[in-house]
Design a protein around this nucleic acid. Structure first.
Ligand SMILES: Nc1ncnc2c1ncn2[C@@H]1O[C@H](COP(=O)(O)OP(=O)(O)OP(=O)(O)O)[C@@H](O)[C@H]1O
Length: 730
DNA sequence: TACCTATCGGTTTTT
DNA sequence: CCGATAGGTA
């Protein structure tokens, strides 16, 4: 491998640094990820380090995969034996091996956000805290913060027991931890903390991993939390060959415990650390790079970086000021159209970012009507759907019969006459006899006050689940799924449902069956636990297929680490971005600004920022203001489009919109409807590539486009865009 | 026990 | 505006 052909001098230095702590602190697009990828390959191929002795931690599973496949091209198949994963996947891997030492079974369940809230609700009930006194969500945040900082329930009680709100949290927290353990379950935070406990209580195990991981590399180090920091420090303390890579300006996960001081203090933690700074940006145009730098310079407590690039100056950043969220979608669509026509852009090179998932909706609506394909990252995930979670709960119960949360979820789904009060009685019985809920379900004969019919229902479910639990190791996963479906009648349950969504639910369940089959195909001796862990830990970006020919829609958080030729950031409004909840918060604005910096620096060639005069929120229309981050970008880098800024109110009132002479100003371009070419009329017969033939019933103007209503022979009434639907007159 | 409707309130971001 | 949920009714 000839490093100098692939990397610049500083990058080469970083790659060749073999022993001792190394910090690569550098701005966006400077090739940090590229450096650790090649460093990994270099260690394997030039120094012949055994792959088992290397631990690589990335931020997403996808990043891990990518790094693996890049390194594989240089270092070959060895790479597959490197421990490469996210912190959470690493935790699971270690815990599945040593769970017994912590008093858990290997088959523990991983609770996601929803499970966690369900459990917490029970705990709040037991602690006699009503959800009027404290919101479940708030309580969860407190507990999550505590766990990320490694504060035990006892310590929490000690520190905050006398406070009103936190005192309640302390009581709930204690119950919550006990329940998790009793359920043989772990939440996301446990996946980091429990391995630490394991190491602390079992010096021999710690020694084994310390000895094993002679080389440790961590990407996105600015976003690790205290627990993760402790875990890594512990494992690295023997060889100290720890290479961390990050950018303090890109720390955007404080809400889940990320602590920027971890990266800022690295040199104190390892006084002999070598520090390498990368100052050349390979990603963006000069304009984008400079604008991003100007924005982030408004933060204090950061390490200043002098970035430069050899790339072209590029085009100005387009700032689009539009009337509302509908016009925002319209503007984006117009620009995408231009990108494709004028610059031959591929849809896969275009991304639309926003601060909150809810914002995707108006944009999606517009793209969908235009028939423009898009990939949505996040929002309602497949695995979050009710029917999918039901099926997964059945699987989880079979894997881990102590999982009370999953048990309660499915005990009466489909309805089988087992009501909440019955469940309470079964729970009581289980508690008295020190058996699991599932076992108790099989012994309802010994209880009173349950109707015979209901008892029979209980026994049936018990027989089904225990039967499958016993046989599950002799069964293929897909057969297990099939047994669950037939045994519970889950499909017919939805078939009998009148709701129009029921059909889709059945489709989703079928899709899950194929996902299971596919998983089994790929991993030959995959266990049920493997499948369930994978589902629990898969992130939204992991599922993204970057080669699919479609526009990408995602939050800026999800976009971290990615890059696109053309980037749109919608909702550059004060109170949206920066978000209203962050404005008052200590350090909130700075975190939002870092987020803005991350968003801007994803763009390679072109950047579009959009803001709206007013938006629909909770049904009502609310006026907004342009985000302060826009004002932090020097005028010289901006090209304005849409409504002229600042005067929006007068304009609205006077009704005068155009002819304000704004075109005369160099950076302004008053844009508005350039009507689309229109040769169609109501009554015309048309054909559509997917919908088939139909008759136009209505045409109405829509921005610079027209909205055409067509009655299709096969598919009924549909609304289409004149520009994009590609209707042909026949 | 199951299902329907009136009421309330609003999760920012994610493993 | 839309979804979750409590509370009443069949
Ligand atoms: N020496 C180099 N020669 C050519 N291209 C490079 C070089 N270094 C990095 N690049 C390219 O620059 C882009 C950014 O690199 P990379 O993603 O590694 O940066 P990063 O510092 O991790 O970015 P960020 O922190 O913004 O996620 C990539 O497309 C990468 O291939």
């Amino acid at each position: 491998m000839e490093l100098r052909e692939l990397l610049n001098e500083e990058q080469v230095q970083a790659v060749m640094h073999k022993e001792g702590p190394l910090l690569i602190l550098a701005g966006a697009g400077s090739g940090k990820t590229r450096v650790i990828t090649y460093r990994l390959a270099w260690l394997l191929s030039e120094h012949n380090v055994s792959p088992e002795n290397i631990l690589c931690v990335t931020f997403t599973n996808k990043a891990a995969q990518e790094m693996k496949s890049r390194a594989r091209k240089v270092a070959g198949k060895k790479v597959d034996k490197v421990w490469m994963s996210t912190f959470h996947s690493f935790g699971v891997r270690v815990l599945r091996l040593h769970a017994e030492l912590l008093g858990y079974d290997k088959n523990f369940t991983i609770y996601d956000q929803e499970d966690r809230e369900r459990l917490l609700k029970e705990c709040m009930h037991d602690a006699k805290v009503s959800d009027k006194e404290m919101k479940v969500y708030d309580c969860m945040r407190y507990i999550q913060d505590a766990k990320n900082s490694l504060i035990t329930p006892a310590e929490y009680m000690n520190d905050y027991g006398t406070e009103y709100e936190k005192g309640m949290v302390a009581r709930i927290y204690e119950i919550y931890e006990k329940r998790l353990k009793r359920n043989n379950s772990m939440d996301f935070d446990d996946l980091i903390w429990k391995p630490l406990d394991l190491f602390n209580n079992n010096p021999a195990v710690l020694e084994k991993y310390r000895e094993q991981f002679q080389y440790i590399m961590i990407d996105e180090y600015q976003d690790i939390n205290h627990a993760q920091y402790m875990l890594i420090s512990m494992m690295a303390s023997k060889y100290k060959n720890i290479c961390v890579v990050g950018d303090d300006d890109q720390s955007i996960y404080r809400f889940r415990g990320a602590d920027i001081t971890n990266i800022l203090n690295f040199e104190e933690d390892y006084p002999d650390a070598k520090v390498i700074r990368l100052e050349r940006n390979y990603r963006s145009t000069q304009t984008i790079l400079k604008a991003a730098h100007k924005v982030i310079q408004n933060n204090s407590d950061r390490k200043e970086k002098e970035m430069w690039t050899d790339n072209d100056k590029g085009e100005k950043i387009i700032f689009y000021y539009v009337d509302d969220e509908v016009m925002e979608g319209e503007a984006i669509l117009n620009e995408i159209d231009k990108l494709m026509r004028l610059h031959g852009a591929d849809l896969k090179d275009i991304a639309i970012f926003y601060r909150t998932n809810a914002q995707s909706r108006s944009i999606e609506d517009r793209l969908r009507r235009a028939g423009l394909p898009y990939k949505l990252v996040g929002g309602f995930s497949f695995y979050g759907r009710m029917e999918i979670k039901d099926m997964l709960s059945y699987m989880r119960i079979i894997a881990n019969p102590r999982d009370v949360i999953s048990f309660k979820r499915i005990v009466n789904v489909p309805p089988r006459g087992i009501s909440d009060t019955t469940v309470e009685k079964v729970e009581q019985f289980a508690f008295q006899n020190d058996i699991t809920l599932l076992e108790a379900l099989g012994r309802t004969q010994e209880t009173e006050n349950i109707k015979p019919m209901v008892k029979q229902s209980c026994s049936q479910l018990h027989a089904l689940l225990t039967g499958l639990a016993i046989n599950r190791n002799n069964m293929k996963l897909r057969d297990l799924m099939a047994e669950i479906l037939t045994g519970t009648g889950y499909i017919s349950f939805w078939e009998n449902d009148q709701n129009p969504k029921a059909k889709e639910r059945i489709e989703n369940v079928k899709e899950l069956v194929s996902a299971v089959a596919e998983f089994e195909e790929e991993k030959k001796d995959a266990t049920l636990e493997d499948f369930l862990s994978q589902v629990a830990l898969i992130s939204e970006v992991d599922k993204l297929d970057e080669n699919a020919d479609a526009v990408t829609l995602m939050t800026i958080h999800s976009a971290k680490g990615l890059e696109f030729d053309n980037v749109f950031i919608a909702g550059m409004d004060e109170k949206i971005f920066p978000h209203k909840n962050c404005i008052e918060e200590e350090g909130g604005i700075e975190e939002e600004r870092r987020l803005a910096y991350v968003g801007i620096t994803r763009a390679r060639k072109r950047l579009y920022l959009l803001s709206a005069i007013s938006r629909r929120q909770f049904g009502a229309r609310t006026l907004g203001a342009i985000s302060r981050f826009i004002n932090e970008i020097p005028e010289e880098y901006l090209h304005h489009k849409g409504r002229p800024p600042a005067k929006q109110l007068d304009e609205k009132l006077s009704g005068a919109v155009h002819d304000m002479g704004i075109d005369a100003q160099p950076n302004y371009e008053a844009t508005d409807a350039e009507p689309a070419v229109m040769q169609l009329e109501p009554g015309d017969k048309v054909s559509h590539i997917k919908m088939g033939e139909g008759i136009i019933t209505k045409i109405e103007p829509y921005g610079d486009d027209y909205r055409i209503t067509v009655m299709f022979k096969k598919n009924g009434r549909k609304e289409l865009s004149a520009k994009y639907a590609g209707l042909a007159k026949i």
